[in-house]
Design a protein around this nucleic acid. Structure first.
Lengths: 226, 226
DNA sequence: GGAAAAGATTAAGAAATGTTTAAGCCCGGA
DNA sequence: TCCGGGCTTAAACATTTCTTAATCTTTTCC
């Protein structure tokens, strides 16, 4: 969970940004001028700042110069101006990026993500590495699988099959498809092989492998995860 | 003196950028497609890359994905496209910034300056130079490692491997990944080599190397630190 | 209901992956 | 030049996982 400080004198913009950022999984702090922003920084661990340039009281550029004396998290300027001079001033003063209002929220989020990634580089806990299907959780970075919170240990082939099915819950994969995707090879007479691995998988992730809750068969079609 | 790699299939753009950047005091290297860019990176210390998205041969996005496996200098995409989707794709794939052609050279230089400043001065990663994983402490500034408070002496290769794993505790790294990250080279048949270093590491940081507490193997997947 | 097809189960040998040891190479310092 | 630390390679060994094939069970459909 990363924390973003949003600083803008326009309360509507602040609350709009807060909605976007919160929806994207960030913890959001707010300030309405440069001085408030500095106060918030003293009290909290902030990973990125969205800073308006034109604010009453202490403006964005002054605030940035001041905060750079003590902090080095990425700062993205948000401003209504779009002339080159402002961009250049902002970047030279120590900003990491610059977006102009009215901004596309999706682009803004992408830039926020990009800056935080660089800042926390190799922090290596990409949220998208955890895939969930029912009570099955797959952490692809750790190659770890939990069912009902309990960790189960899978072989590489079992893991690959589960990952394939869990990435598209409900979708039915024929044994030939599974073989092609997991083995990266043409299926010759691979149905039996796949069946054995499915059995092993069920033994590990199902309470009663004979009556699977998750890894179901669709007769004549293939297997799917519910 | 910082070195910038300019990569674009349009020779006119490359030479124009080279003129701007050289005038601003940068050392400039050039490449005309993604593959060439990767070759240049192997041979030179590059501080920033200006990368075109649309190139024949290996395109910019593929090149970025590839080079991010081994390098972490800032990358700015330069492209004729200006739609949001491209901006978002580029940033999500690991770019640090994005400018659209035709670009204002002064703005471009400001963005280059901004990225290089963050990369070289502000420290790309959070200031913590001591990394901890369980009872393992790594002081990256001093290149010193302590286990249970006791200092152990590692060779450079062992140190690099430990650092890689300890920076992302729980994350599984395949021998090929480890080789790529530590040796900055393509793994050919490097599994045995990695295995031997893992063994030496275990001998130094584990009480019983045969029953490792920290440096564990995940069968068929790779190694991780707990 | 019964035959045929699809899937499940089992066990054992084969193959892949990891570990350990040892020897030789390379390079920098004495 | 010699020495020694560190790296790589190879080989033997240990362990885990995969595949195969035979047999059993379930489902489908006539």
């Amino acid at each position: 969970m990363y924390t973003v400080l949003v600083c803008d004198d326009d309360k509507d913009i602040v609350s709009a940004l807060k909605i976007y950022l919160t929806a994207d999984g960030y913890n959001v702090l707010t300030a309405y001028n440069g001085r408030e922003a500095l106060d918030v920084l003293k009290e909290n661990e902030v990973h990125l700042i969205l800073l308006d340039i034109m604010m009453p009281g202490m403006d964005g550029v002054s605030a940035l110069v001041k905060l750079r004396e003590a902090y080095n998290m990425p700062v993205i300027f948000t401003t209504a101006k779009s002339e080159d001079n402002d961009i250049i001033l902002g970047l030279n003063v120590g900003a990491d990026d610059y977006v102009t209002k009215p901004f596309n929220p999706v682009e803004l989020l992408a830039r926020v993500r990009s800056q935080i990634r660089r800042y926390t580089r190799l922090g290596a806990k990409p949220a998208e590495s955890v895939i969930t299907a029912g009570a099955i959780e797959i952490d692809d970075a750790a190659k770890a699988v939990r069912v009902d919170g309990e960790e189960v240990s899978l072989t590489p082939t079992e893991y690959d099959i589960l990952l394939l099915l869990a990435r598209a819950p409900g979708k039915v994969f024929s044994p030939a498809e599974i073989y092609r995707e997991v083995w990266h090879d043409e299926p010759y007479s691979a149905d039996a092989t796949v069946a054995v691995h499915i059995r092993h998988l069920r033994e590990k992730i199902e309470i009663d492998p004979a009556k699977p809750r998750y890894l179901k068969v669709v007769w004549g079609q293939g297997y799917k995860i519910n």
